[in-house]
Simulated scan of single mutants.
Amino acid sequence: MSGQNDAPAKLPAAFANLCGENIMSKNNKDIWFPAMKYGIGWGLPTTWQGWTVFLIYTVLVIIGALFIKRSPWLIIPFIIYVFVLTGILLFICWKKGEKPELRWGKKL
């Protein structure tokens, strides 16, 4: 008996929240990306964390586009790059946004 706590190590709070580890309930403070009023998906971010993610995504896509301007033969890697970035963005929206469902205005 070494006297140390044998409990499993916990993830840092920011990473655990991002991965959905310790989210008890999704209230408005936890939602970075609200659901769209019409259609399926998420709208523009409502928190600074959401805007940071959105800005990083946009900057990375623009940086990738600048490489295409220099070397047009990199179009296929650029498309793959954008698909990967978009997948990461969608994963974050899924974890930190409202439940995606078909909406058409106010619920009846």
Score class of each variant (00 low, 15 high):
L60I: 02
I23R: 06
K69C: 12
I31T: 15
E101T: 14
S25Y: 09
R70H: 11
F54Y: 11
L55Q: 09
I68E: 03
G39T: 09
T52I: 07
S25R: 08
K99Y: 13
M36G: 07
D6N: 08
F15Q: 11
I75G: 06
M36C: 10
T52N: 02
R103Q: 01
N17K: 09
I88E: 02
K29F: 10
F15G: 00
G64E: 00
L66N: 13
M24L: 09
G64F: 04
Y38D: 14
N27P: 11
C93S: 09
L89I: 07
I76T: 09
P34T: 07
W32Q: 07
P45D: 02
A65F: 08
N27G: 14
P77F: 05
W73H: 10
G41D: 13
F91M: 13
N22L: 08
F15S: 07
I75D: 12
V84S: 01
E21Y: 09
P12C: 10
K10E: 15
I31M: 12
F78A: 06
E101V: 15
A9P: 02
I92T: 10
G20D: 00
K10Q: 12
I40R: 04
F91W: 13
F91C: 12
M36D: 13
T58K: 11
I88L: 06
I63M: 01
T47Q: 08
I63V: 14
A16G: 14
Y81R: 03
F67Q: 06
M1I: 00
F91P: 01
T47I: 02
P72F: 04
L89H: 04
A35P: 08
Y38F: 15
G41E: 12
W94C: 08
L89E: 07
S71M: 07
L108C: 01
N17C: 00
N17Q: 14
I62A: 15
I92M: 11
